[in-house]
Every structure is written in structure tokens, then in C-alpha cells.
Amino acid sequence: MFPSTSATAPRVLLPVATAAASRRAMAAAAASSANPPPPQQPAPKAVRVVVKGRVQGVFFRDWTVETARALGLSGWVRNRRDGTVEALLSGDPARVDEMLSRRLPVGPPAAAVTAVLPSPADPLDPSEGFQRKPTA
């Protein structure tokens, strides 16, 4: 048989005040992990974009309004007299990047985009929404 370890091992007893303080600390830690601070919103990003190709007369502006609103962006879109489409996109940086890199280069089915030329812009108030402007 093996000798009993309880007889040879020293026993450690915590004072009552220390045990209570330990329980309070554990409860506080559990409460803080249950209610984490709200996530920080990234600073809004805005870009002015000129889209070249066959982009007029193919539902491009209406498609841009629908797509931008679906992504929660604010801004505007309009035709330009030189045959391009111009847009201002403002909002969450990941969603602006999504519009720039994945949506605008493809456009609606009848479009044939040859270039998307972005430049920095000042962010808009999200309450402005996304609109279609007259030709400039």
C-alpha cells in the first residue's frame, strides 16, 4: 500500500477575509467579462470615384445607389458630360473598400467598366444617405 499523502502534506488554510476577497475578485472578473465594453467604430472613410467605360445608359447610377445603400454607405452618384460616372462614397472603411474593389469594377450586367479611379474625400454625415445627382 502507498502511504497516505494527507498525513504528510502540509495543509494550507486561507484566512476567512482572504477567501472572501478572493471570491469578490472572481465575481468582479466574471461580471466584467460578461459585459465587455462596446466595440469601437472605425473612423469613416470617404473617396471620390470616377468610373470609366460603358457606364452611361446601362442602369449604372441606379445600380450604384442600390448597392451603396445595401452596404450602408452615404454619398452620391452622377453622370459626367465626358461619358464617365462620378461618385462619392462615405462610411465604414471595409464597406467603402468593398464597393471600390469588388462592386464598382463589375457594375451592373450591361456595363463594361475599364477603370475605377479613386481619390480621397471628406466623410459625409451618415444621415445624408446615398442619392443620385443630376449630370455635371
Rank of each mutant, 00 (worst) to 15 (best):
G75W: 09
R81I: 03
T84G: 00
P3Y: 10
A94T: 11
V106Y: 12
R102C: 10
A110S: 11
P42A: 14
L89M: 02
S90T: 02
N79D: 12
A46R: 09
P44F: 10
T18N: 03
R24Q: 14
R23F: 08
V106C: 05
S6P: 00
A17H: 09
P3H: 12
V47R: 11
S127A: 15
V49Y: 11
R61K: 11
Q40A: 15
R69K: 15
M26N: 05
G83A: 05
P134G: 10
M1N: 05
D82R: 00
P3G: 08
G107C: 04
A20R: 12
A30K: 13
L88N: 05
A115M: 09
A110H: 13
T135H: 00
P108W: 09
A68Y: 08
D122S: 11
R81W: 13
A21I: 03
P44T: 07
L89V: 02
R24N: 07
R69G: 01
S33Y: 12
S119W: 02
A34H: 10
A121V: 03
A68L: 10
V49G: 03
V51G: 01
P93T: 08
P15S: 14
E128Q: 13
R103I: 11
A121F: 04
P39A: 13
P37Y: 12
T5W: 12
A20H: 05
D82E: 05
T67G: 01
F60K: 06
R24Y: 06
P44K: 04
G57Q: 11
A46D: 11
R69C: 01
F59V: 01
L14A: 12
T8C: 04
S6Q: 07
S32C: 07
T84K: 02
A25H: 09
V12M: 11
F2V: 08
T67F: 06
V77I: 10
D125S: 08
K52Q: 15
A43C: 03
W76G: 03
L88Y: 07
V106W: 07
S4D: 15
T18S: 06
S74A: 15
A87T: 12
V85N: 07
V51S: 06
S22T: 08
G75H: 07
V96I: 10
A20N: 02
V16N: 09
F2Q: 06
D97Q: 12
P126K: 03
Q131V: 13
V77W: 06
V106R: 15
V51W: 08
G75Y: 07
A9D: 14
F59Y: 13
M26G: 00
L89S: 01
P44D: 07
L14S: 08
R102G: 01
E66C: 02
L88F: 08
N35K: 11
P120M: 04
F59P: 01
V113L: 04
R78W: 00
R61D: 05
G57K: 04
V113W: 09
P37R: 03
P36C: 10
A136E: 13
L71W: 07
T67S: 15
V116R: 03
G53F: 02
T18D: 15
V65N: 03
V50K: 13
A28Q: 14
P37I: 14
